[in-house]
């Protein structure tokens, strides 16, 4: 097998709380993600799954263990790993178009080319008429579309998505999941996707990593063997899809029970 896109070995993260106690957030996590694979990290809130993603992004330093991307150790953030946050994190003082152009301009792409590429991406996320709007004028779903376009613009090899649809209403979430799948099925970037939604994880992923809580450890890795392109209406009546949902719901419930019992 070829080298994994992302290799996480013995990853551990300890925080010091305000009163000086040590809190073990992530404990000895080992994951490998292949190129072009869509992997979700599923777990209850407070299981450290976002922290795990931030460490892959290079935003947070691990306490122990190693992360390599294409064989190179992660020492900080880089344009090979594009983050998409639940809070969108758009630059509010820039227009939609300027936001999407920003990463390209940072990398020295000419203004004309950056604008052309940004406009094409806005077209793809159905926002071409909103190029001159400011983020505050957009709905949550539109903001997240801009954020995805902004990250796709500088062509990272890996998308790091931190509960990207968590702040959206149920309908918008479904629409954006479909759009994300559409985009992903076209260019097959490697995606690490953090979520606490079981159906979201099954619908999108090739593999789902289920995590325990406090400390966050890997409980189980579930391979999602469902045909692509995936169509929600077809999956809902698909027996295997339903079994995955039940299996993962059960695992999450176990995690909750274990946490309550501990």
């Amino acid at each position: 097998m070829s080298e994994p896109m992302i290799a996480i070995q013995g990853l551990t993260k300890r925080f010091s709380t305000a009163d000086g106690r040590k809190h073990l957030a992530i404990d000895d996590v080992n994951v490998e993600v292949a190129e072009g694979e869509f992997v979700s990290i599923l777990g209850p809130s407070g299981c450290g799954k976002s922290t795990l993603l931030y460490m892959v992004g290079g935003f947070v330093a691990p306490s122990a263990g190693a992360i390599t991307v294409q064989g190179r150790p992660v020492t900080g953030p880089g344009p090979d790993r594009g983050p998409v946050f639940q809070e969108f994190a758009l630059f509010p003082w820039k227009t939609v178009l300027e936001n999407v152009m920003y990463g390209l301009r940072q990398q020295g792409v000419s203004k004309a080319e950056a604008e052309a590429r940004a406009r094409a991406l806005l077209d793809m996320v159905h926002l071409k008429d909103f190029a001159d709007f400011y983020p505050k004028e957009l709905s949550g779903g539109m903001r997240q579309r801009v954020a995805i376009a902004r990250t796709l613009a500088y062509q990272p090899q890996i998308l790091l998505m931190d509960e990207p649809f968590g702040a959206l209403d149920a309908h918008t979430r479904t629409v954006l999941q479909n759009e994300l799948l559409g985009i992903w099925e076209r260019d097959r970037k490697t995606v690490l996707f953090v979520t606490h939604g079981v159906d979201e994880a099954v619908f999108l992923s090739d593999r789902v990593v289920v995590m325990t809580r406090a400390p966050g450890r890997i409980k189980k890795v579930v391979e999602i063997d469902l045909p692509r392109p995936r169509v929600r209406a077809e999956l809902l009546v698909n027996r295997r899809y339903q079994e995955y949902i039940v299996e993962l719901e059960q695992l999450i419930e176990d995690v909750h029970l274990e946490a309550a019992g501990a």
Partner: peptide
């Protein structure tokens, strides 16, 4: 200043001094 804004800028490859003027100040 929203940490995620700084992270987004870092992922784009923005250097610390530039981040001060282009993210922190605005």
């Amino acid at each position: 200043v929203d940490e995620k804004l700084l992270w987004s800028a870092m992922a784009m490859g923005m250097k610390p001094v530039a981040r001060l003027f282009k993210v922190v100040l605005p």
